[in-house]
Design a protein around this nucleic acid. Structure first.
Length: 833
RNA sequence: GCGGAAGUGGUGAAAUGGCAAACACACUAGCCUUAGGAGCUAGCGCCCAAAAGGCUUGCGGGUUCAAGUCCCGCCUUCCGCACCA
């Protein structure tokens, strides 16, 4: 049968054809100017690192975003749907070492390859706004922002303990250390080094970053919680204890100043500066402290600070409690961290579990200073950590509530000058220096006479030199480029040296989505008016792994830009969606697991539409997705059925599309009804739940119904105009999920223009409504039968129909019907005794 | 330890408190044929030889006319946090 051969769905042919047409007409996916009169919609997916290969995680992320963008286009919005490249970073240097390809060349070639993959997938991006972060046109604005931050005191240099990844041969920000290991080298323990580094003062926005989370109702609660934990705000009190026989003071931080009368020791972090003084004349103490430092370091490196066994050494010195003059021993303990609070605590074993454990071990006194509140006379065993109680053994504060006592003790400390209320954060300033080549040069100059001098704005960008030899030696590779390093001081004109560190690549991704709104601007990072039109992002879509990295940095950056007067929004993204991982054989798809499925391979075998549609069909988007190739084949077969069905009936339908049809009946009515139900379901899902898996299933049901009616369709039982309506709506519903096939069939049914410009179908509730309903009938909650009633049947009619039924009769014979529950349109339940 | 998510057929999964397993994959049987990774038809949770019937959403309780769904307790898995004073 020769004609059967023609009826073969060949995605390669269809998809290449449309890919070419779309390439020829970039306006299809282009954002329109602000004055276009349509409401705006900014849908954004996280930009990829150009490794050279898209992986399935990308395909999933971008299929979700593209479906949404297409839907919004069809809903008549002015959609901004951009894409770019997070193009700086270490892999380019590693590749340079391995294949002697310059990082720039390697990166741009990868971008080329990945862009082709995206285009092959049919993702509808506005490539006119493409952003590539490793190009000077982009990174000069990183430098510009950096200078603004220097001016505002938000960028500064200091020596401190920093995280050093030996594999990256560079420092890392705290956010980039995961369980004591490098976020890129999961097996590599991050070392602590003392280095002078550049920091961005993200802590200046700590409270705003925390409070702003409450306004981000469109963000997953999980991400908000992670950010709250990361910021780690804690209100408390700082109190100075005097060192006995010395003028020195030890400042402690506590959240429970109300328990201070129960402080029976002061505990110092092993690296506390005063410990060094104590140990200077005490070799035994020095040895003990060194051991504690070592224990702490090892625990930190094991990423298991929480499990460290508590050890301590007594210093032999004593401290005086400023509230009552009590004399308590000073200890050094391995569970006290120098980088939190003041690096010193007052130990209250009666009311803190950790202090209790330590005190018990070393025979330190335990005192009760909090008792349960009035009307509760029993004395709970120590440690009693509740804040719901009253003070005892605390002098004039006895009987006061914990909360009231805290306030009074803080006021006293403040008025006497030995302490005050403070807030402590876990969040630290963002260390942005990297001792690497392939990043944005930090635009600063070191002059012996003038110190640190910013590069003047008119000398930006500080260009990253080409032809740099990449080695694995320590120190920044830029330091070995004489031409780069030697520079005249902009202030005094004398010989000076450039800063040779580059910026963390998370700087690039902290504001890239603003650049999309005005990507070609050479005078400013972007036009504030453009940003104001498009921002905030209506829907951001990406992986949850960036919850405390990119997603906190970019919130910070937005607030800085707002304070610079560049934007008016406080937050970058109104709504955030984090899609689940792609799993295969029970593990996350990854090279190291060897379970990677290549998108190219899938596209070659089954086509882009099938690959994308499977990524949406196999699981709801927020859940993990199990990749099964048979499933992709199944979706491909489905698309084949759609194609054949449409091809078979398109000629007839389109030739008589304008004719008026009689009121549909029989199979025509049935199909029309299904069509309106499907439209309603999918429309609803785009507006809310985003269960695209069931959207695809609904389209399958519609197609199954149409196919089951094939004989009637062939016999002309469905009037041509109705048939046309069915096919047309099917294509429209398919368009966000299978754009290639939709474009092809749109043409096949004789429509002009792009399906993307056609309005999204509207479901008619009257036509969606069934005329007869099957109502389940239960007796005592157990299903007995199903009765058919008119869809508008009231409860009485339903009850009557149920009681008339033979099976029900048999079941209730000889019993008393105590009660009948009838829910209109739902069910009837007879309660019998 | 704290917080969050999840646990449903052989598999991926579906179900505003109202017929559990839609839609698909795999499998079985049949048809067709240009022998394909194609198409079509039928079957497919478990127990019982079949029917009739009974059972079934990790486990145990509860609320309700009615619970996969709500409440309480527990188990398991995954994710985040974890001596943060």
């Amino acid at each position: 049968m020769a004609e059967e051969k023609e009826l073969r769905y060949d995605p390669a042919v269809i998809e290449t054809k449309w890919q070419q047409r779309w390439a020829e007409d970039p306006s299809l996916y282009a954002a329109e100017p602000a004055g276009c009169g349509k409401p705006k919609y900014y849908v954004l997916e996280m930009l990829p690192y150009p490794s050279g290969q898209l992986h399935m995680g990308h395909v999933r992320n971008y299929s979700i975003g593209d479906a949404l963008a297409r839907h919004m286009w069809m809903r008549g919005y002015n959609v901004l749907h951009p894409m770019g490249w997070d193009a700086f970073g270490l892999p380019a240097e590693n590749a340079a070492l391995k294949n002697h390809t310059p990082p720039r060349q390697w990166t741009l070639a990868n971008i080329d390859a990945m862009k082709r993959q995206m285009q092959r997938l049919g993702l509808g991006y506005d490539w006119a706004t493409e952003v590539t972060t490793c190009l000077p046109e982009y990174y000069r604005w990183n430098q510009w922002f950096f200078l603004r931050m220097v001016e505002k005191g938000l960028a500064y240099r200091k020596k401190s303990k920093v995280n050093w990844c030996p594999d990256c041969a560079t420092v890392l920000a705290n956010e980039q250390v995961v369980n004591g290991c490098c976020w890129r080298h999961e097996e590599t323990i991050v070392e602590q080094r003392d280095l002078v580094q550049w920091f961005l003062r993200i802590t200046a926005y700590a409270d705003e970053l925390l409070d702003g989370l409450d306004t981000l109702e469109g963000w997953p609660e999980k991400v908000r919680t992670m950010q709250r934990n990361w910021i780690g705000r804690s209100e408390g009190t700082e109190v100075d204890f005097t060192v006995e026989g010395s003028a020195e003071k030890i400042r402690v931080f506590t959240t429970r100043v109300d328990t201070i009368f129960g402080a029976t020791s002061v505990q110092l972090a092993p690296e506390h500066p005063i410990v060094k003084d104590f140990a200077a004349t005490n070799a035994e103490l020095r040895a003990g402290v060194d051991k504690l430092i070592d224990e702490q370091k090892r625990a930190r490196e094991a990423g298991d600070l929480g499990a460290i066994e508590k050890h301590g050494v007594a210093t032999g010195r004593f401290a005086l409690n400023p509230y009552n003059g009590a004399r308590v021993p000073i200890w050094v303990a391995n569970y006290i961290l120098m980088d939190y609070g003041t690096g010193a605590i007052m130990s209250v074993p009666g009311h803190d579990e950790r202090d209790f454990e330590f005190a018990t071990k070393y025979g330190i006194e335990v005192q009760r200073v909090i008792a349960p509140g009035a009307g509760n006379s029993d004395e709970p065993s120590l440690p009693f950590t509740s804040e719901d109680g009253v003070l005892v053994n605390s002098g004039i504060y006895d009987g006061m509530s914990c909360e009231a006592a805290q306030k009074q003790l803080q006021d006293l400390a403040a008025s006497k000058g030995f302490g005050q209320a403070t807030v402590t954060y876990r969040l630290k300033d963002w260390g942005v220096s990297r001792q690497r080549y392939w990043g944005t040069p930090i635009p600063m100059i070191h002059c012996d006479r003038d110190g640190l001098v910013p590069v003047p704005d008119d000398q930006l960008p500080v260009l990253l030199p080409e032809q740099v030899e990449i080695t694995q030696q320590g120190g920044s590779p830029l330091g070995r480029v004489a031409d780069f390093v030697h520079v005249k001081c902009p202030r005094c004109g004398g010989d000076a040296r450039r800063e040779t560190d580059t910026m963390d690549t998370f700087v690039d991704s902290s504001w890239y989505f603003y650049r999309y709104t005005d990507a070609k601007n050479s005078k400013a990072p972007f036009d504030p008016a453009a940003a104001q039109y498009w921002f905030p992002i209506d829907q951001y879509i990406g992986g949850v792994e960036h919850a405390i990295l990119h997603l906190i940095y970019s919130r910070f950056w937005t607030k800085v830009m707002r304070d610079l007067g560049l934007v008016r929004n406080d937050e970058p993204a109104q709504r955030l969606f984090t899609q689940g991982m792609v799993i295969k054989d029970g593990a996350k798809m990854s090279k190291s697991k060897g379970n990677v499925v290549s998108p190219d391979d899938m596209v070659a075998r089954y086509g882009a539409d099938a690959t994308r549609m499977y990524a949406l069909f196999a699981a709801p988007p927020d859940r993990d997705l199990d990749w099964q190739e048979d499933g992709v084949a199944g979706v491909s077969r489905f698309l084949g059925r759609v194609w054949r069905l449409a091809s078979r009936y398109a000629p007839l339908a389109k030739s008589r599309r304008g004719e008026s049809a009689p009121v549909p009946q029989g199979v025509a009515l049935k199909l029309l009804r299904k069509m309106h139900q499907t439209t309603a379901k999918i429309t609803q899902d785009f507006e809310g739940r985003w269960h695209f898996n069931t959207c695809v299933a609904a389209i399958m049901e519609l197609v199954n119904d149409m196919q089951a009616a094939d004989a009637q369709l062939a016999a002309g039982e469905v009037p041509a105009p109705v048939l046309y309506d069915l096919l047309r709506t099917l294509v429209l519903l398919l368009a966000p999920f299978a754009p290639y096939l939709a474009a092809e069939l749109w043409q096949a049914i004789g429509e002009d223009g792009a399906v993307l410009r056609a309005p999204w179908p509207v479901s008619d509730p009257d036509l969606a409504k069934e005329d007869k309903l099957e109502i389940p009938v239960q007796v005592n909650g157990k299903l007995v039968t199903v009765v058919r009633v008119a869809s508008n049947a009231d409860r009485a009619a339903m009850e009557a129909a149920a009681q008339k039924d033979e099976k029900v009769q048999a079941r209730i014979a000889g019993k008393t019907v105590a009660k009948i529950i009838a829910v209109q349109g739902k069910l009837v339940n007879l309660v019998v005794k």
